[in-house]
Design a protein around this nucleic acid. Structure first.
Lengths: 207, 207
DNA sequence: CTCAAAAAATGAACGCGTTCAATATTTTTT
DNA sequence: AAAAAATATTGAACGCGTTCATTTTTTGAG
C-alpha cells in the first residue's frame, strides 16, 4: 500500500494544527510551547518542525482562513446597491472588524502583525502582506463601484483614496488589538468618524 | 564623596548605551547579543539588566531621540505660511520621512514597531504609542493652521482628517521599512499621490 | 521475502534573552 | 575607624525556540 505514508502525514498534519490552535486559544500564543503542542498532537518536537517551518507559521494558517472569509464577505457588500458613501464604507469596514475575532484572539493578531513586520523576507510576512493588499484593493473597488453608479464624484482617484482609507482601517485595527479594553463597536465608531469628512467631500451633490 | 556611586552609574549607563547603539548599527539588532554589548561596555550581563529592563528598552532611547527631533522640526514646518494644502502636507510628511533613518536603520524600526505591537503593556510600547499620537496630533495641527488661514474649508473636521492622513503616513512607513529596496523618494511620492484627492477636495476655492 | 535506498521521526544539544542567589562595593551609623 | 545597612555586580543557570546527527519506518526492486 503506497498511500500509507501520505495518510499518516495528513493525519499528523491535522493533529498538529488542531493541537496548536487549541493551545493558542487556551493559553495564548506565547505560553503555548512547541513541546506542549507536539505532545498534544502525539509527535516529537522534531516532527513538529518537519511539518511547520516554525511557530509563527502555525499562525498563518489561521490568519489566512480569517482573511479569506472576510474577503469573500466583502465581495457581497460591494455588490449591494448602496446609496450613500458613508454607509457603504461603514458596512464594508464593519464586516472586516466584526469578523476579525472569529478565529484569532487579539494576542494572536498582535503576534501575526508583529512577525510580519519584524521579518519581512519570510513566507509568513509575504503571505500576510499579500492578504493586506487584497483587502486594500477591495476598498478601492468599493469606491470605484460607487463612482460607476454615480454616488462618488467622477474626478476622484479611487485607487489613491482607497489605499488611504484602508491604511487608516488597518492602523486603527492595530490600535484595537493593542488595547484589550477596546471593543469592536468603539473601533467602528472611531473609524466612521475619520471616514466622514472623506465620504462627505467625495459624494456627488454634497455642497 | 557621596557622588561616587552616582558617577559610576552615569558612566556605565553611557558606556552601555554607546556600545548598544554601535553594535545595533554595525551588526543589526538581532545579531547584537547582550553578552557582546556588555563586554564592549566593560560590564557583566547581569549589570546590563540592572540598567535596562531588556534588550528592546535599549531601542527606545534611540527611537525617542529620533521622533523628538522630528516633532521639533515639524513645529517649524507648521509655522510656515503655506498657500497650498498639498505642498504643506508634502513638506511636513517629507520631513518625517527624511529624518527617519538618521539614527535608526530599517531593521531597528521594524524591531521597534514589532515590539510595540507584540507587547502593548510594556513601557516600551506605551512610550512608542505616545510618540505616535504626538505625531498624529501634529498633522491635525497643520490642517487646523491651514483652516485658520483660510486655505482649508471651514466645514472640515481637522481632527478626523488629520488622524486619517497620519495613519496612512504611518502605515506607508511600515511598508517602507519592510521593503529594503524602497527608498525615501518612492515613499514620499506614493504618499503624496494618496494625499492628493484629500488635499484637492478640502481646499478652499477648488471646484 | 530480503534488502538497500528514501523518507520521516526523534530528542539531545545549542543559542540567546533573561533571572537570581551569592558576592563585592559603597554609604551610613556609632 | 569598624560594623552594619544599603546598593550594585556578577555569571552560572534556566526557559524555550530551533537544529541536526542518529535511528526507525516505509517503499520498491530483485
Amino acid at each position: 500500500m503506497s498511500g500509507l505514508r501520505a495518510q499518516k502525514k495528513a493525519d499528523k498534519n491535522r493533529r498538529i494544527l488542531e493541537a496548536a490552535t487549541t493551545l493558542f486559544r487556551k493559553v495564548g500564543y506565547d505560553s503555548a510551547r512547541i513541546e506542549d503542542i507536539a505532545e498534544m498532537a502525539g509527535v516529537s518536537v522534531g516532527t513538529f518542525y518537519n511539518y511547520y517551518k516554525n511557530k509563527g507559521d502555525m499562525l498563518m494558517a489561521t490568519v489566512s482562513m480569517e482573511v479569506e472569509e472576510v474577503l469573500a464577505a466583502g465581495e457581497g457588500i460591494i455588490a449591494k446597491k448602496h446609496d450613500q458613501v458613508a454607509s457603504a464604507l461603514f458596512d464594508l469596514i464593519g464586516k472586516y472588524y466584526d469578523h476579525s475575532l472569529t478565529y484569532l484572539s487579539k494576542e494572536m493578531w498582535r503576534t501575526a502583525m508583529s512577525l510580519s513586520i519584524a521579518q519581512p523576507e519570510t513566507p509568513f510576512s509575504k503571505r500576510y502582506t499579500a492578504l493586506d493588499h487584497r483587502l486594500s484593493k477591495q476598498v478601492c473597488d468599493l469606491f470605484r463601484s460607487l463612482q460607476d453608479r454615480g454616488i462618488v464624484r467622477k474626478d476622484v482617484d479611487c485607487m489613491a483614496l482607497g489605499e488611504l482609507v484602508f491604511n487608516n482601517v488597518n492602523m486603527m485595527f492595530i490600535e484595537f488589538v493593542k488595547d484589550e479594553d477596546m471593543d469592536v463597536d468603539g473601533l467602528k465608531a472611531s473609524v466612521a468618524k475619520q471616514n466622514l469628512p472623506v465620504a462627505s467631500l467625495i459624494s456627488v451633490g454634497a455642497h
